[in-house]
């Protein structure tokens, strides 16, 4: 099972207890503008440099905007704004909040 399998939103509602809202998990690259999410999983292929920048499990972030040509995109996290390319963002799995 690879992180890359999730081409679109995956709802895990059927596994969640009935009293909890469904969790929406997707790739970081799929966030819409101004959408917030929490990192739930980081592919081991991701460079430790990105982890040191704050892209690690538990971090809450938000997509600020995309570049005029569509890529890269700016994320707001931990009081900073960082641009990542889609190819790196898709290795990070987030839960929408």
């Amino acid at each position: 099972m690879s992180l890359l399998d999730s081409g679109s939103f995956v709802s895990t509602a059927e596994h969640a207890p009935a009293d909890r809202a469904p969790r929406l998990i997707c790739g970081l690259h799929e966030l819409g503008r101004r959408q917030s999410a929490k990192i739930v999983d980081v592919d081991p292929a991701v460079s430790p440099r990105l982890a040191a920048l704050g892209f690690c499990k538990g971090t809450i972030l938000r997509l600020d905007r995309r570049a005029p040509l569509g890529d890269p995109r700016i994320f707001e996290l931990r009081g900073t704004r960082l641009a990542l390319r889609k190819s790196d963002a898709r290795l990070i799995r987030v839960e929408l909040i």
Binding site: S47, L53, P72, T80, A83, L84
Partner: peptide, 9 residues
């Protein structure tokens, strides 16, 4: 090769 990242201060 490091992934591209750019801080926007």
């Amino acid at each position: 090769s490091l992934p591209f990242y750019q801080e926007l201060p």
